[in-house]
Design a protein around this nucleic acid. Structure first.
Length: 718
DNA sequence: AGCACGCCGACT
DNA sequence: GTCGGCGTGCTC
């Protein structure tokens, strides 16, 4: 009898064997999708072991219902990568494969490549461009995009409805060929770029990791493009990973002007159908360049020739729930398996990457010069102890803002906290509005007039009286972006304030509108969160204020200072215009803190030196490897007790197994959470320990009474 | 994760 | 007398 092994989208770390009819056996290859009966339902799985003669008694097996692909949908290379990742992250292969496929294909829809649609401008369309009202922005930009010639549907940034309307109006028509020729000639590299290119080219053949460290504006993107160009020239494809492409349209625009319509984007806000088309285009080789977020690292490229990871330090590369992989790390491993180069780019590389560069595992290339030669900003630590704070802003900072605005500059205030105030406090009795499901306070949002929990999303209208003592003296304590925005709007009434946070920026269009206001000088003050640290250029910006640098300094997370250094440096990199150095002010209650001083006086590189020394002394990554076993349950103490039992089963050896502890915020979303930390200088030993204990836990009946998960190389220990 | 099977409370 | 609560057990 013939038997094939199938991987299924269930949280079980093993494959399932099915009986195969003789006539099906030859067509059933590794990587094909099949429909199989499983328990009481029917599931789509991937064949991981082709049919073979079963050795012993196999009476209990069920039959495969249907073969869904004549050609394996998952190419051998991708399947191998998924198997590696399932093993490395101790995650069920079926769920890893699920992460590697867009929804439709995962559910068993046929892998049909839609006819590559192209559109061309008609004479009527050309005429319409002159007469069309400005308000019809979507139509205008569609027609504008076609002026130079026909374009592929995928390259047009137009919704189905917009396209339909233009077709109906007779402005555009389906066309046969789309040009995929570069529209822009590559600029001549600066001497520094040329030197970097020479360095990159020396080991053009085969696997190598290059860490490209360069401040904002130093021309990293041009090096990415050259590297991609080289891959395309040898008939290969290129993958560019970026943290959030909806927030950084410039990068995609640069790719497109250089590589034309062979550029595709892949990210989670595309529809399943659109994702499937890009996925299949990567697979058949017609997508020459893909720019994508985290999940794009799993695309089934036919001939991948290079991977670029932009902003390699960015935390969004690490998936924070379910299958907790790092797209940067998977990219490096994939490149190694394919024997192709990887380029990691950042103005503020992670300590891991710097460490690897230093130890010789990565080649380190540094770009020091800004192409448009604005000198680096000057950073000052502002001691706010004892100063009267106006909604979190000190008089010296307010004066600096006034000065810069008066000189025609723009000011940016950075604060990593949304909302109006993080705490609503009763001045009479000390009651503070709590979240009922988390160990946290509710954040007051004035705009929506709601108290919102930033950890579980719970919301409620703010009370008028204190629920505890009835007093009406409720105070908003602390400052978020809404409050800073309002304080600045009141104080500088003659200027306009633009707020950038996820409450205000809910769409690409909203972001573009506000960015346009800033660039055109219609708004002069920017207030916002992380969003402002991500690659936007503000040519008129002369002052950056970090509202508080303190949180990271007494944070309990070992990466907090590294992250602050990256954030401050990234935000600071936005300052400086027309040859004038920008100014960066850091408000703090701990002005003497050595790490803060190091950052302010000597910059990010020096901060990393200090942090690396600290990590070495404490044996933290990158000088050791970590894994976290997390557990959560509704019953308050169950998770912790469970992990205590797990601990006794971790095989001893070169691995330190800490006492399980309640998570920093123990109660979240109604669950009590706990974690067990494993640490080892040896990656192999850590993996052996996990591989020893995880299957045991899975087979454990009591493990079914709570939620548990493994996090290899955890990003934070929360 | 589903989805079954399996024993105890308020309803047509 | 039944519908259904979700505990626990299994899925080739």
């Amino acid at each position: 009898m013939l038997v094939a092994t199938v991987s299924l989208p269930v949280p079980l770390r093993r494959g399932f064997d099915y009986r195969v009819a003789a006539d099906l056996a030859a067509r059933l290859r590794r990587g094909c999708r099949v429909r199989v009966p499983f328990g009481g339902r029917s599931l789509v799985g991937i064949v991981v072991q082709a049919p073979r003669e079963a050795p012993g008694a196999v009476a209990e097996l069920r039959d495969i219902e249907a073969l869904l692909d004549e050609e394996p949908l998952i190419p051998a290379e991708l399947l191998g990568l998924c198997e590696w990742a399932a093993d490395y992250y101790l995650h069920p292969l079926g769920e890893v494969l699920g992460a590697a496929m867009p929804g439709g294909l995962r559910r068993g829809e046929p892998a049909r490549v839609a006819r590559a649609e192209c559109y061309a401008l008609t004479a009527a369309g050309r005429a319409a461009l002159d007469t069309l009202a400005d308000s019809r922005r979507a139509q205008r930009s569609l027609l504008q995009a076609l002026v130079a010639g026909p374009r592929a549907r995928a390259a047009l940034d137009a919704s189905a409805a917009v396209l339909r309307r233009a077709l109906d109006a007779g402005w555009i028509e389906p066309s046969v060929a789309a040009p995929s020729l570069p529209r822009v000639v590559a600029p001549t590299p600066t001497p520094e770029q040329a030197a970097a290119l020479a360095q990159l080219a020396t080991d053009d053949a085969g696997f190598a990791v290059h860490l490209l460290e360069g401040v904002t504006g130093s021309g990293k993107t041009e090096l990415y493009l050259r590297r991609i160009e080289a891959a395309l020239a040898s008939g290969r494809q290129a993958l560019l990973l970026a943290p959030e492409i909806s927030l950084t349209p410039q990068l995609e625009a640069r790719l497109r002007e250089r590589f034309g319509d062979g550029v595709h984007r892949y990210h989670s806000t595309l529809t399943d159908k659109a994702r499937a088309q890009v996925w299949l285009a990567a697979r058949d080789g017609s997508a020459r360049v893909v720019i994508g977020t985290r999940s794009a690292v799993w695309l089934p490229f036919a001939r991948l020739g290079v991977i670029v990871v932009d902003e390699e330090h960015d935390t969004s590369y690490k998936q924070q729930d379910g299958f907790r992989y790092s797209a940067r790390d998977v990219a490096i491993l994939r490149a190694k398996r394919l024997d192709i180069p990887v380029l990691l780019g950042s103005a503020t590389p992670s300590l891991e990457s710097l460490h690897n560069a230093r130890s010789g595992r990565y080649r380190h290339i540094t770009l020091r010069r800004r192409v448009h030669a604005a000198p680096p900003p000057r950073v000052r630590v502002l001691d706010v102890r004892g100063l009267p704070l106006d909604h979190g802003l000190s008089p010296p900072l307010l004066q600096a803002i006034e000065r810069h605005l008066g000189d025609g500059g723009q000011a940016l205030l950075f604060l990593n906290r949304r909302g109006y105030a993080p705490v609503l406090l009763c001045h009479a009795c000390g009651w503070r509005a709590p979240c009922t499901r988390c160990d946290a306070h509710l954040t007051l949002h004035r705009g929506r007039n709601l108290l919102i929990c930033h950890h579980c999303g719970a919301q409620q209208p703010p009370p008028r009286h204190c629920p505890s003592c009835g007093s009406t003296g409720l105070l908003a304590v602390g400052a978020g972006t809404e409050r800073i925005e309002q304080a600045l709007a009141n104080r500088f009434a003659q200027y306009r304030v633009a707020r950038f946070d996820s409450d205000r920026i809910t769409s690409h269009a909203a972001l573009e509108r506000q960015l346009a206001d800033i660039r055109a000088g219609r708004a002069q003050i920017l207030v916002g969160t992380q969003i402002l640290a991500k690659g936007h250029d503000f040519p008129g910006l002369s002052l950056v204020g970090i509202v508080s640098a303190d949180q990271a300094l007494y944070g309990s997370d070992f990466r907090a200072v590294e992250r602050m250094g990256q954030l401050v440096t990234q935000v600071a990199g936005r300052a400086g215009r027309a040859g004038q150095p920008g100014e960066v002010w850091l408000q703090t209650h701990e002005p003497e803190h050595p790490l803060l001083q190091t950052l302010a006086r000597h910059g990010y590189g020096a901060l990393c030196e200090a942090l690396l020394a600290e990590r070495r002394d404490t044996g933290l990554p990158p000088y050791s490897h970590l894994a976290l076993l997390r557990a959560e349950s509704r019953e308050p103490t169950l998770a912790l007790r469970f992990l205590q039992q797990v601990r006794t089963r971790v095989p001893a050896g070169e691995v330190t197994v800490f006492e399980p502890v309640p998570s920093i915020m123990e109660r979240r979303g109604g669950f009590a959470r706990a974690q067990l930390l494993l640490q080892s200088a040896s990656r192999a030993a850590l993996h052996r320990a996990l591989a020893g204990v995880v299957p045991q836990i899975e087979a454990w009946p009591q493990a079914r009474r709570l939620r548990w998960s493994v996090d290899v190389d955890p990003y934070d220990l929360m």
